[in-house]
Amino acid sequence: MFQLSADGKKKVQEYLKRYETKRSAIIPALYIAQQENGGWVSPDVVKHLSEVMELPMTHINEVLTFYTMFNKKPVGRHHIQICTNVSCSMAGGHDLADYLCERLGVVDGEMTKDGRFTISRAECLGSCDTAPVIQINIDDYIENVDKAKLDQLVNQLK
C-alpha cells in the first residue's frame, strides 16, 4: 500500500488549504504522490490520496486520466520525454526518438527491461528556441540535443 511521506502529506495538506475548493489541489497532490511512488500513479496512490484529501476517488481519477503528465503505468528511473511538436520535429525530434528507442530496444512508452528508462514522445515543452529538446523526469531539460548527446546520456544515467 502506498503511503505519502510525512513531508509529502504536509505539502498536500497545505495545498488543500491554498485553494477555494479541495478539488483544485488534486494536480499538485498527484505530482507529489507520483514522485514519491517512483514516477507513476498506481490505483493505490489514488486510494491513498482520496483518503488523505477526503475526496472521492472518482474526482482524482478524472484529473489523473486527463493529463498525460501523470503516468498510469510504471516508468523507468529516467523518464525521457522527447519533444516532437512542430519546432522540435523540424529539428529532428522524431529521428532522435526513433534512434533512442532502437538503441534501448523499446517502443514508445515502454520501460527498458532493466528498469532504467522509459522513452516517450511529448508535445511542446516550451523551449522551441533550443529545439530539439528533451525532458528527463520532472525538471531536467536538455537542449539542442543530438545523437551524440543522447549516447552520452544513456551511458551516464544509471
Binding site: 472521492p56 472518482t58 474526482h59 481519477n61 478524472e62 486520466t65 486527463f66
Partner: peptide, 15 residues
Amino acid sequence: TSEVSKTNEFGIFNR
C-alpha cells in the same frame, strides 16, 4: 451521483 445520491460513482475519464 455527486449532487443527489452523493455517492460519486460516475466520472468522465481521459480526454
